[in-house]
Design a protein around this nucleic acid. Structure first.
Lengths: 195, 195, 195, 195
DNA sequence: TATGAATGAGGATTCATTCAT
DNA sequence: CATGAATGAATCCTCATTCAT
């Protein structure tokens, strides 16, 4: 089995997102994904090693593009604060624009077993590194605190992003997610204390 | 089925935590839990309606006590900042003291189905309300920003706590979690900006 | 374990009839019967060897009395035709008067396994012998055909009685069973042919 | 699940008859039926919705054919008496020729739950209608009594057939069933009275 | 006698994966 | 490349029965 061939590969990925979003992780059988993709069950195994491989590939493909788009936007002459804002806003924008994907990444894929989630975290590494880069630039340029613990700050930023999106998905996406970018940005920059 | 009586009820809960932590959610068979608890399979069903009920009860018991202990500690004459610190520290302390429980709450129980997670969220509500109370006191006393968006701030605090603990668990608990309370407290209070 | 002691023995039998009639054979758990009888589960086993023994005893008690009553009525100076009529009418009358028992004997007890039904048939033997006696008297006295095959005639009589009552029970006992005694009597005596 | 195709469908039905006849209804596990049919357990579920569906299908297939064959034989220029005889004889002949089926229909399938028996009764309706047709013809042509109550007569005929076959099965099929057709026919036509 | 908490054997069903065509 | 019929491992729960009190 090679890797990433033909249009069927993408068909299957898209079908998986749709089927999982609509049926939930535990009711997303391979046969359902195959039917949605318009291929036979067996065909799945010409493009993916097993079911887990579909999910990992899905995450790699989608999150890969997700991070790439954010990275593109924060390249160039911007202050670290601006970069952080764009990162947050892009994060929200992309998930708001693809709710099926949001459901899959925020809720359904978390039901996967510990091993799969480990693999997923590897994919997330690229994103976390991107956050680290912004933090590093901010620290060096003096915008951000010189004592900043990167790991902790990154966990705060990512944990908050994640929690905010998850809450939005669990509330059926019925409020505007993107408009939360500005207050969240301010909160992360200045904390909750008055000054 | 009676309700939560006898020592067997607790034995089964403890056994469930241990078995799930060791084997993972999906390999935690009822028979394994029964054996670990030193009772017959059927005995489980004298104390719990079904397997899901064990998990919900486990979470309710453990998280209920978890939140209660935090609540006890932050009652009294303390500033909101001190209360937030104690909340963070107690959160870390309790999970650091019971790593099996940490594994179960941070990793394994998230694999549960939608219905179970709904029930879990109800339990979490009490915790989130507790955070809100601290935030509210801080706002009123002028310690915290007067523009503070409770929901957002709560999501930042909880999201960060959760992410920090999850990372610690996924790194096999091999660094000291509790010592992160202080820097995290400062980060939440003052943000990442220098001043 | 002795046999037939105390009032509890009868309580349990009556409880079994009620529970089986109301819940069906497969949902008539021993614990349900015990609760209905107002005794502990374990007490059942002081009066009956096992669950099957309850059912057999139930049938023996109830059918024994059932047949005895019919027997009493057909003793005396009656023609075989009259005796057959009384047998049919008493059969219908008794079941019409105790619908719970009718449900149990016609529907629920038939779901028991082959072995139990064998035992039940032994109980029925007395009834079948009674029919044979009537047939025998009829043959000797010349009222009934001299070529009469007892076994066949008995199977016709019993099979018809049984089928008629079963149909009545399955139609929720919503028509008058006893009034069928007369036409059925005539049909058995003269057959379906015109003459 | 498709509908009744391929040789496997029939294999499974035949296996079910055999396994139920040999082991009894309650010990006829799906895995036993699968092994007897020479297929995997899971294959059963490509042809049947669940275990109950096997039993219903079994009864529909077998009884459907059973009734069809009788119907074929009594079409044509025959008197109602002759038709009744053929019906009885065919009933006996078919069950005598397939003793496993006789055991299943007379003993084992009656242990099924209320819902299944309801479905079974629907299948029997066709047979009862066939009996009614013969009775109706007999009444119109003057062969049968003009006062004949169809329902009662039908219950007598079916009840007797059923009782005779059940007795034969319970006596381990050790006497000739088919030769009972003639005396039974006469008994039903003329009753037990001498004339 | 009476209790009732505890026992533990037993079975239908799903679905990821294979392989003959 | 593509198909889809066939595979078979794996597990929760019920309930008749026991026995220490």
């Amino acid at each position: 089995m090679g890797k990433k061939k033909g249009p069927k590969y993408d068909q299957i990925i898209e079908a998986a997102v749709k089927v999982i979003a609509e049926n939930g992780y535990h009711h997303a059988q391979v046969s359902k994904i195959a039917k949605e993709a318009g291929v036979a069950d067996g065909t799945i195994y010409l493009y993916f090693k097993n079911k887990e491989d579909i999910l990992i590939s899905l995450f790699e493909e989608k999150m890969g593009r997700f991070v790439d788009k954010i990275q593109e936007q924060i390249e160039g002459n911007l202050t670290p604060k601006e970069k952080l804002f764009i990162l947050i806003e892009m994060h929200f924008k992309q998930l708001a624009a693809n709710r099926a994907l949001a459901i899959v990444t925020q809720l359904e894929l978390r039901q996967s077993n510990a091993e799969l989630r480990l693999r997923i975290n590897e994919v997330l590494k690229k994103y976390l590194d991107l956050i680290d880069t912004v933090l590093s630039e901010g620290k060096e340029s003096g915008y951000f605190s010189e004592n900043l613990d990167f790991r902790l700050a990154r966990q705060m930023i990512f944990g908050t992003l994640d929690e905010v999106v998850t809450n939005w998905v669990m509330k059926d996406c019925k409020y505007d997610l993107v408009s939360l970018a500005k207050p969240m940005h301010e909160l992360l920059l200045d904390g909750i204390c008055s000054r």
